[in-house]
Every structure is written in structure tokens, then in C-alpha cells.
Design a binder for these strands. Structure first.
Lengths: 139, 139
DNA sequence: ATATTTGCAAACGTTTTGCATAGTG
DNA sequence: CACTATGCAAAACGTTTGCAAATAT
């Protein structure tokens, strides 16, 4: 999904393209990994925007509700990302570090099957592997 | 993992096999799907146990910390399950219903590859498909 | 001009904590 | 007996809300 399409979609829903909203979408598009709320706040500060915490909450809730972004809660922290069909992660159970992995999944076929059999309209998916990273595995 | 092994593991770590702990482990083993805290509380009540809320929090945190159970947060609600290598779900973005699906994954091979390449010791994984269930898809 | 978005401060609900008591091995 | 687990009440924390002012279309 290109950024123009996202903007248009927001317009169609009656939403405004505020500075905060644009920066959030922009940074999520340019970051190819999960961003926490703190991470998003930092990106906003870099653009000289210091919105109130409640604004961020409302903004992220809005973007999730309109399916513009996806929320993924790992280890009690909410992370956000642009739906891109592929977002797979290695999550360390000890240091809680999260790293991206590229694995070939065969989900397109599976998803079509599920859509038919279960009549469930799949928009995206998330896959996380939990375990110990190299550092933590060696105590 | 058999229940005796779990009990032994808890003992080895210096943990006690309290009534609450046993019922939680039992009900998670016998439930083949995700259980929320409320769901676990109901199971405890069925066994005439009405522990304090803080006890449940502490207990679940303990079981997660010792890798006896897994926590999976979906739509802001923490769900718990026994690690069993396979726990895949369909999550409705509208009514928030969660249903189990059995899909053949090829992760054993992938996991071995990742373990080698990234030196990441994988213990388990979670896979969720997000979208609209049959009811919600028809508005 | 109209509807959406924002900041602020207060309210809310969930989760955590400290400590004394009870329970387990 | 030593140590873990529990209940209780209070504290801490993240998140949400109502409203008036600011902003976008």
C-alpha cells in the first residue's frame, strides 16, 4: 500500500491529514520493523511534534480501527506496523529483544483455503518465534 | 509435556504444588485453546478455589517466568496456554472472537534453520490470522 | 462553516507492592 | 523448620474521558 492510497483512504473516511497523523504513518512506512509507542513518540519529536500522550493513544487507536496499521502486543508492550503480509519476529524470552526474520511462508495458499473453508476474510497475520537469543542462551 | 514432568520441574525450581497452581496447570492442559484470566478464574471456582486477584497475577507471572505456560496478548487481553508447538488462531478484528485452526506448518525445518543461522534457541511460536469472521464480514 | 483533532486534568481500571499470615516440603 | 505462596489494602501505572480550544477541509 502506497502512502497516497493511505492518505486517500483516510480522507474517504472523513479523517483529517494532521501533522501527527502523517508523521506516524510516514515513520511506520519507513520503519520496516515494529514500533512501540515510545518509538513513535521519538519519531514525532524528531519532526518537532510533541503531542500529548492522550493524543497518541487516540491516534493509534484510530489508525488501528481503520485498519491503517496493525497492533501487535509482545511482552506487555504494544507495537505497531503497517500491514505488509509479512512480519515475522524472533522474541527473546529473557532480554525481550525483538528481531525481524525473513522466512518463506506458504500462507497465501493456506489463507485462501481458510477463507473458503471457514468463511473467514483474512487481512493479515503475525508470526512470532519465542526462545533465547544468542546472548541469553549462554546465561 | 506430561503433567508429572511439569510438577517435577516446578519442584526442581523450589516451587510448591499448591492447589491453585495445580488447578491452573490442569485446566490449561485440558483446555486445548487459549484461556484468559477470567476463564482461569472460572476453572478455579469450579474447584472451590477463590483466590485473590493478586494471587492469580502472581501465579500466572510465575508460570510464564518459568516457561511452564505461554502468554499471548490479543486485542488487549492476555491469554495463556501450555506450550505445545502448535497454537494458531483466527482473530476477528470486529467481534474479537478467537477460534483455533489446524494448519500444516513447515516450521520444524524453518526453526532448525533459524536456530543454526541466527543462533536463536526457539522454544515455541505463535501464529495468528487477523480478519473478519463470517458474521462480521456481512456487516 | 463544519467536523475532526488536540491538550489538559481528572477519572478509571488493571496490575503491582509490602507486609503479616497461612501453607508446603 | 525454612521457605514459598496467599490475602488484604494501598499504591502505582497505563489508558480513557469530557470539554473547550485549535486545526483541517
Amino acid at each position: 500500500m502506497k502512502i497516497e492510497e493511505i492518505y486517500k483512504q483516510i480522507n474517504n473516511l472523513g479523517g483529517r491529514l494532521t501533522k501527527v497523523r502523517k508523521v506516524i504513518i510516514d515513520s511506520l512506512i519507513n520503519s520496516d520493523c515494529l514500533m512501540s509507542q515510545d518509538c513513535i513518540l521519538k519519531a514525532l519529536k524528531k519532526n518537532d511534534l510533541k503531542p500529548n500522550r492522550s493524543t497518541i493513544f487516540r491516534e493509534l487507536a484510530y489508525l488501528v480501527k481503520t485498519n491503517t496499521i496493525i497492533k501487535n502486543t509482545i511482552n506487555n508492550i504494544d507495537y505497531y506496523e503497517i500491514p505488509k503480509a509479512h512480519h515475522h519476529h524472533l522474541v527473546c524470552l529473557k532480554c525481550h529483544d525483538i528481531s525481524k526474520i525473513d522466512i518463506k511462508d506458504h500462507f497465501e495458499i493456506e489463507e485462501k483455503k481458510i477463507s473458503k473453508e471457514k468463511k473467514f476474510n483474512i487481512l493479515n497475520h503475525s508470526l512470532e518465534f519465542y526462545g533465547y537469543c544468542e546472548n541469553c542462551n549462554n546465561f
